[in-house]
């Protein structure tokens, strides 16, 4: 009995990775808009160096964004974002680890569009929070396109906006994600 169990466990554990159907990218795009209402300047940035892996079998999905890869229109804004707001020397990366709720309803071998929900942990500025985000999965040929839009409350992640710039930087950032993953 014991031997049988060990053999079975070993077989399952070692076989699991080869069955897994994974999709990945290192050029996913995340952009955000943290412009305060009525601000004279746009507080927007875009990051085209986001990495992501999706396990189509389990529905597990991860995203990882290097903070220094967020590009701003104004270089000084980018510097302040790194130095004062996200403190990228201390917290160089932001990541999300989650699971697609209804992954079994997504047919990864046939073109189609699916509305889904992803729940997991978003880590940013050293703070981890449970989040649930609605998103869209588009299967197109051999690639999987994931799209999501959600809001992040800056105070939740201990990102302090000083009073002097509160007319420009909002309390919330609207985050947009677009990732085109290819089979790994």
């Amino acid at each position: 009995m014991k031997r049988l169990f060990v053999i079975a466990a070993a077989a399952i554990l070692s076989a699991a990775p080869t069955f897994a159907q994974k999709f990945s990218t290192r050029t996913a795009k995340i952009s955000f808009d943290a412009t305060a209402p009525g601000s004279p300047e746009d507080i927007t940035a875009v990051n085209n160096e986001v990495a992501s892996i999706l396990d189509a079998k389990t529905g597990d999905v991860v995203f990882q964004a290097p903070i220094k890869s967020f590009k701003f229109k104004r270089a000084l804004m980018q510097e302040h974002f790194n130095e004062n707001y996200l403190e990228s020397d201390t917290y160089p990366k932001s990541d999300f680890r989650g699971t697609i709720a209804n992954v079994s309803s997504v047919n990864f071998s046939k073109d189609g569009t699916y509305e889904t929900k992803v729940s997991g942990k978003l880590t940013m500025h050293g703070v981890t929070k449970e989040v649930t985000v609605p998103g869209t999965i588009v299967v197109k040929g051999a690639s999987v396109i994931m799209k999501a839009t959600f809001n992040v409350l800056l105070a939740d992640y201990k990102v302090n906006v000083p009073g002097v710039v509160s007319d420009k930087v909002g309390k919330e950032a609207k985050v947009q994600l677009e990732a085109t993953l290819a089979q790994k």
Binding site: I53, D55, T58, V62, D95, R97
Partner: peptide
């Protein structure tokens, strides 16, 4: 299952 997503992150 808990370790899965972490493992994916390690892969990245």
């Amino acid at each position: 299952a808990f370790a899965q997503a972490d493992k994916l992150l390690d892969e990245l």
